[in-house]
């Protein structure tokens, strides 16, 4: 449930990408979040967008190299409920390809926007296989 994009629809290295997450009623997380009102935790939408941004930045390299350093101007506009197909989009800034705008859309309605997602490249330790 955490950090699992179901399909990457498009990917342009250094520019942007789109992906989909299907929010199924079987997800164990809904037992506690919340019993009377199951809703996808908003931070998991942020996590999906960071995973997609990492794929855009990685190109042919390992996406694990790229992690979020900062996230700013996040707005949760609508709840994401079981049964929703979430369409995720990230777009790199022209002036800094490690910074992204992101959004999540369900049935044409924007549910979450991220104004500024900054990714950073982790460095492999000396002697590592990175």
């Amino acid at each position: 449930m955490i950090g699992q994009l179901d399909a990457v629809r498009s990917l342009t290295p250094g520019v942007g990408g789109t992906a989909v997450r299907n929010v199924t009623s079987t997800a164990a997380i809904f037992a506690t979040h919340f019993p009377r009102f199951p809703v996808l935790p908003g931070v998991l939408v942020i996590d999906d967008l960071t995973r997609l941004a990492a794929l855009v930045l990685a190109g042919d390299g390992p996406a694990e190299r790229w992690v979020p350093a900062a996230v700013a101007r996040v707005r949760f506009r609508h709840y994401v409920r079981p049964g929703d197909v979430v369409e995720l989009t990230v777009q790199a800034r022209n002036d800094d390809p490690s910074r992204f705008q992101g959004s999540a859309v369900v049935d044409g309605t924007t549910v979450t926007t991220v104004g500024d997602l900054t990714m950073t490249r982790t460095t492999a330790p000396p002697g590592g296989q990175g």
């Binding site: 955490i2 931070v43 960071t50 992690v67 996230v71 460095t123 492999a124 590592g128």
Partner: peptide, 14 residues
């Protein structure tokens, strides 16, 4: 989540 450097990390949004 496996990282590129030294072992697993907690996803930052968590």
């Amino acid at each position: 989540r496996e990282s590129a450097d030294d072992g697993p990390v907690m996803p930052p949004p968590l």
